[in-house]
Design a protein around this nucleic acid. Structure first.
Lengths: 119, 119
DNA sequence: CTGTTGGTTCGATGACTGTCGAAGCAGCCT
DNA sequence: AGGCTGCTTCGACAGTCATCGAACCAACAG
């Protein structure tokens, strides 16, 4: 059950945003982990760095943070488990890329709904 | 320093999404707490219920969850502190409403950027 | 003033999280 | 094979979090 597997109910929600139809418990359980993963300043920046490039190796990500390599790996793992990024080892380096589809699900969920919202 | 106070840098970010320009550390620190607040299934549903109505009293929110009133209050407080909802007591009841502007900041942050994203 | 109902705050507790440093693994060199 | 570099995993630890039940405060109805 990943963030990308949508039920009909969830499709409606992610079609028109959180304000249109109350998110069901099942959808909340599936969507919340991705928001939680982005709810840490380190991971939000990591996701943003990765999203701004086609892909990025850990050796390019790590220097931006004053953290041990173990901690860097830990955060990247959480982003991966949340379905927000993918990774692949190619030779010496491990590359990370953003899963745009997952990001889009969240963007739609939080997008301002033209019908229900009123500034 | 709330989610709604934007620096020039942050305006650029929240204009075109997380993938356009890497989020700065300061912006990440300011934006992450709101995502964190929504990163819990209970609070995501609460925010969604509140967002789907002009306003909602606690007595209408609480029955949707199998939680003690103390825990309900705790979650609503976190949403309030994250700047995502506002609240006001009117007579017997306390009413909560969504802060659409804060939601919009997040929606824009996570929205798919036409320029940088590619599926 | 007293009881009742709606919410918040408090204290305690078990679970989870962010962090480090050390150990481990993978792929290179030579 | 032996060593080096890049990254992940492991074990430990302090800090945070979700939850409950109890105590508390606010408004109202008798």
């Amino acid at each position: 059950m990943s963030i990308l597997e949508s039920t009909p109910q969830e499709r409606e929600v992610t079609c028109c945003g959180l304000a249109t139809t109350p998110v069901t418990e099942a959808d909340a359980v599936r969507l919340a982990p991705a928001l939680k993963a982005l709810g840490d300043p380190v991971r939000l920046r990591m996701a943003s760095m990765i999203a701004a490039q086609p892909e990025l190796c850990v050796c390019e990500i790590a220097p931006a943070f004053d953290l041990s390599s173990g901690t860097i790996s830990h955060h990247l793992k959480l982003l991966r488990e949340a379905g927000l990024v993918g990774s692949e080892r190619r030779g010496t380096y491990v590359y990370y890329w953003i899963e745009h589809a997952a990001l889009e699900v969240l963007g739609t969920l939080l997008s301002v709904d033209q019908g229900a919202a009123q500034g």
